[in-house]
């Protein structure tokens, strides 16, 4: 060890230089620059003027921002448990070595590789009134059509359905990987004890993949707080802002209204929310380590 210390040279740092350059220029610098911009009256084309916390005051007193935060929180609260539960269910159902399960795994994962544009286009075909898939189904059943993309409540629900369909592949794969790490002798012992399937699930399977469940939940919380493309392309945040998430608010404020200062102030608030979620992850995992 001492030998390697003696031989260490400052030039060894050159090995991390490419990564550090990208990290500092594309992550660290924009982070601090964003913080600085949020304290300025500024548009996209310069001319920044320091105004202290006025942008934050405007953001917090804007009911549209409050509505966007509420929409995002509701969206995360509903979509994340759904993604965890459905991902877990699918991984349990497909944790087999048959040809059909391999095919179905690929099928369920395939939506994840699509771009947001394609995903929203597909779901638009489903939800759009008139000729949409659901509209035709409702007509067939003799029910009154629902404006899924233009009715308050339904619009966020529709964005959520498209999101779950799009994002389901990753949780499923993570759960499958975790399930395959469980030693098979545990299941053999349970079989010898004649344990019921429910008991095996709740006493062996779920406790064994607990850390993966937490990981998937935290990753999804962080991802779903950044909801943007689906909402912009499917509903544009409407009707009446009822499906506008925080990132769409930031986008509108910065790029449509050109108010970059206020947009970055809203970004900093989102950053804090996501930081809080990441800290929860740290807290939960370190508590487990202590135990």
């Amino acid at each position: 060890m001492a030998e390697s210390y003696r031989r260490s040279r400052w030039s060894n740092a050159l090995f991390i230089l490419p990564y550090m350059t990208v990290f500092l220029s594309l992550l660290v610098f924009p982070l601090f620059w964003g913080m600085w911009l949020s304290l300025n009256k500024s548009d996209l084309f310069g001319g920044a003027r320091f105004i202290g916390l006025k942008n934050y005051y405007r953001v917090f007193s804007d009911p549209v921002f409050g509505q966007a935060v509420w929409n995002t929180v509701i969206f995360v609260l509903v979509s994340v448990p759904t993604l965890v539960a459905l991902g877990l269910f699918l991984s349990l159902a497909l944790n087999k070595t048959t040809r059909a399960s391999s095919l179905l795994r690929g099928l369920f994962f395939s939506s994840t590789v699509l771009s947001v544009t394609i995903v929203t286009l597909i779901w638009r075909f489903v939800f759009i009134p008139g000729d949409g898939l659901l509209a035709l189904l409702f007509d067939k059943m003799g029910w009154e059509q629902i404006g899924f993309l233009s009715t308050e409540g339904w619009s966020l629900f529709s964005v959520g359905v498209a999101t779950v369909w799009w994002c389901l592949g990753l949780p499923m794969m993570l759960f499958l990987a975790a399930l395959q790490q469980i030693p098979s002798d545990l299941y053999e012992a349970a079989a010898l004890d004649n344990a019921s399937r429910w008991r095996v699930l709740t006493r062996i399977t779920l406790p064994s993949i607990k850390s993966t469940i937490v990981l998937v939940a935290i990753v999804q919380i962080v991802m779903q707080f950044q909801l943007f493309g689906q909402a912009q392309l499917m509903t544009n945040g409407g009707p009446a802002g009822s499906s506008r998430p925080i990132v769409l608010y930031i986008f509108d404020t910065s790029f449509i209204r050109w108010d970059v200062g206020m947009g970055t102030a809203a970004s900093e608030v989102l950053f804090l929310i996501i930081l809080l979620a990441a800290m929860v992850q740290y807290w939960v995992t370190s508590r487990k380590g202590e135990a």
């Binding site: 945040g237 409407g238 009707p239 009446a240 802002g241 009822s242 509108d252 449509i256 209204r257 050109w258």
Partner: peptide, 22 residues
């Protein structure tokens, strides 16, 4: 100024009234 940004605000609020949300 910002007539495209105004369009979004005006349109969104009009839609809310027309659809009975406000």
């Amino acid at each position: 100024m910002r007539q495209f940004a105004l369009q979004d605000i005006v349109g969104e609020e009009l839609a809310a009234a027309i659809n009975g949300n406000k």
